[in-house]
Design a protein around this nucleic acid. Structure first.
Lengths: 144, 144
DNA sequence: TCGCACTGCTTGCAATTGCAAACTCAGTGG
DNA sequence: CCACTGAGTTTGCAATTGCAAGCAGTGCGA
């Protein structure tokens, strides 16, 4: 698996550029990269760094993420909810903690889906806590 | 603000790694990169490519996007919603589930504070986010 | 027929990435 | 004491990035 997506990445860039009706040199200037290099990138001969990719995205006025996804540099993960997005975006958490929170949240969702017809307060069987890790969590069970 | 975020990127990676309680070599193996290179990246001596960044993110089990934002490779166009706010606003959760998530989240935060042990920072304001850069996000001024 | 401007592509080359091997320092145990 | 293990770091080196300079092809006006 050397560089399969690089080709499609270059094609994508070229396509975007042509749709914008600008020349290779023009885009290179707008993106602040050299035109030969952009040419090579568009033909899949070179694998641009993320920095260059970012500049190209700016020159094309498109989302850098779209390019990264095309380049296979990030997975195209769309957050299912604001909670998941927030958890994923929280840099103060460790990866493990993040996964724990996500697991718990999703298990909650699943539970509630099973009880859709029921009033939401009926989810009392949480005491089983099948997901809680022994990561040293001390959930202060204060009844609030 | 123009200064390379590479330094903070390395610090961020190292912080995440230490919070995950794994050694440099361990993370290097999980990420599929060499340990010397990871060491240099963590100390800001090298600027890793997006591919390496992606592998490191996988090894750390964190979002590649968080790393890219840290590296200044993409703008943080996500609203960076607060986890607590998102949990509180989630109508699909029961009140008890909400409280469980909040408790766990807060205990995680407390754990990490104890681990990192950064005295110069006022550890009282948990709401603050010392890691993510507050940037002026260009609010989509595309041909309005 | 030139000259000029424009398109994209090919060619060396400096700078950088990323790695293998080897190094230093702490801790453990015979 | 010495060997062993595991932590992170330093040191060359192959491979790659990205660029400056230059090449080929097209269209237009004199």
């Amino acid at each position: 698996m050397e560089l399969p997506k690089v080709a499609s990445l270059g094609e994508y860039i070229r396509q975007q550029r042509q749709q914008a009706k600008i020349s290779l040199r023009q885009l290179a200037a707008q993106a602040g990269v050299s035109n030969p290099y952009l040419s090579q990138v568009e033909r899949g001969l070179r694998k641009p760094s993320a920095e260059i990719l970012n500049q190209i995205a700016k020159g094309l006025q498109i989302s850098a993420q779209a390019l990264y996804v095309q380049a296979g540099l990030i997975e195209d993960r769309e957050p299912h909810s604001d909670v998941l997005a927030a958890v994923r975006a929280d840099v103060t958490l460790t990866g493990r903690q993040r996964q724990v929170l996500i697991d718990i949240y999703e298990s909650f969702r699943k539970e509630n889906q099973a009880d859709t017809a029921q009033p939401p307060q009926s989810a009392e069987h949480l005491g089983d806590d099948p997901v809680l890790p022994r990561d040293g969590i001390a959930p202060n069970s204060r009844e609030g």
